[in-house]
């Protein structure tokens, strides 16, 4: 029985790419985002360089204050960047919820796969959602869809981290990225 499972896998791949496409359209492509990102990168490099060159003189009150001011500025910009991303993620989240409810109604009450294990108590509520009978090895659409999405989305985020973010900024953005 391949058709339903492969269809669900296909749906989650398409929605994951759709989500990434939407993120690109609403976030990465925008001028504001590009500007903020290059600003953060520039400040990161500047700060690193200053920390290296100041070395021993960091003990001096003046240098220390200057460094602190720059760090504060960088933090503000990073926060703005995360906030900008978060707003778009919220919009994307709403689109995804709508899509999920459509697919949910299509597969409602349908056993899409047979689980090779019996899920533990609280997971049975998802894996056996809206299914007839008491055979808990029956798998509902939502369970398989969540698993597919967990796997595909997380990997696409990992790839994005590697290829979109430069090494100087990815440590700073990492925290904000985990949210989406």
């Amino acid at each position: 029985m391949w058709s339903d499972t492969l269809l669900i896998l296909f749906i989650s791949v398409v929605t994951a790419f759709f989500g990434e496409g939407l993120t690109w359209l609403m976030v990465y492509r925008t001028e504001k985002y590009q500007k903020l990102k290059s600003e953060v990168e520039r400040q990161c490099k500047k700060l690193e360089k200053r920390k290296e060159t100041s070395g021993e003189s960091v003990a001096l009150k003046n240098t220390k204050k200057k460094l602190e001011r720059e760090e504060e500025k960088l933090k503000t910009n990073t926060r703005d960047l995360s906030l900008f991303k978060m707003r778009s993620m919220l919009a994307i989240g709403i689109v995804f919820t709508a899509l999920l409810s459509i697919f949910n109604s299509i597969f409602d009450g349908r056993i899409v796969a047979k689980l090779p294990f019996i899920p533990i108590g609280f997971l049975q509520g998802i894996s056996h959602r809206n299914l007839p009978g008491t055979d808990y090895s029956d798998c509902s659409f939502i369970f398989l869809y969540i698993l597919c999405t967990m796997s595909i989305r997380q990997s696409s985020i990992q790839a994005e981290r590697k290829y979109v973010w430069t090494s100087s900024t990815k440590h700073l953005i990492k925290g904000g990225d985990d949210a989406h």
Binding site: A113, L115, L144, M150, Q154, S155
Partner: peptide, 16 residues
């Protein structure tokens, strides 16, 4: 993530 990928493949191949 690896566990999720494993479960998806395991379930699909086992059912299929």
């Amino acid at each position: 993530t690896s566990f999720a990928g494993f479960l998806v493949t395991w379930i699909i191949v086992y059912s299929g």
